[in-house]
Design a protein around this nucleic acid. Structure first.
Ligand SMILES: [Mn+2]
Ligand SMILES: [Mn+2]
Ligand SMILES: [Zn+2]
Ligand SMILES: [Zn+2]
Lengths: 124, 124
DNA sequence: CTTATTATTGCAACTTAGTCGCAATAATAT
DNA sequence: ATATTATTGCGACTAAGTTGCAATAATAAG
């Protein structure tokens, strides 16, 4: 008996699908309008992350943002892309380009976070 | 009557100079060993940032890290570099290479954050 | 040196983001 | 229909960072 289908899970996943951008916990909570508990939302998001169907990035505002995995295969995840947050409209989007970073000899990457904030084309 | 020389400011600056890496608030607080208040440390760091003598980066642990500006001119700051945090020894270092990110047409960068965590050569 | 001005500090209260224990609920397997 | 246990809701908790306010002390002025 592994994963179960629940209201909270399907609604949160649906919201992430529709959004086509990264969402923060509080954005989801607002969209859920009381239909799921605060802690539940956190737990569902964390579960989705470990299951590999969404990925997490930490913004320069110190908040976590979650987005669907798009170019990821079941086994091989590719998350070395930047995220852009617009100060004005607040949206956080995954930028398409994968980034290469030269690490010093012997260093091993476990987690990549790229985050740029500023003004999007519509708001600039 | 602009900026004043205080104990807290000079000690914190000294610690950042000696460290040769990025330090978190709590690392500084521990090093200060009670010689400066929690809030004071935060305020000094924020002041240093706006004065442009240090720069701030937000880690994938959600914490802020502060490091001296090295390649920065008075007017032109260059902070488009990644930072590396080692899970084992905990150090956070500024990586030398400046990074270019292709933004969509019309986007304006205000803030760049690059953060990689994993294991450094000594700890891997 | 003495006094006045005000940048800076210490302290406590507060906010926000996220986690966790535990009992109740409900999805699934039998 | 029943048993199992993943998931939820609630509340308490932690950690990071900010802010108001009165006290302190660095510097400028006399
Ligand atoms: Mn992915
Ligand atoms: Mn700098
Ligand atoms: Zn925008
Ligand atoms: Zn290390």
């Amino acid at each position: 008996m592994n994963s179960r289908n629940t209201k909270a899970k399907s609604v949160i996943l649906q919201l992430l699908k529709e959004a086509k951008q990264a969402l923060s916990h509080d954005a989801l909570q607002a969209a859920l309008a009381g239909s799921a508990d605060r802690a539940t939302i956190y737990r569902v998001l964390n579960r989705f992350c470990t299951e590999g169907i969404i990925h997490r990035t930490v913004g320069d505002d110190g908040k976590q943002y979650f987005a669907l995995c798009v170019d990821c295969q079941e086994k091989h995840h590719q998350h070395n892309h930047f995220h852009f947050r617009c100060f004005t409209c607040g949206k956080v989007e995954c930028l398409p380009n994968q980034i290469e970073v030269n690490l010093p000899k012997g260093y091993r990457t476990e987690n990549f976070t790229g985050f740029i904030s500023g003004y999007c084309a519509a708001c600039a």
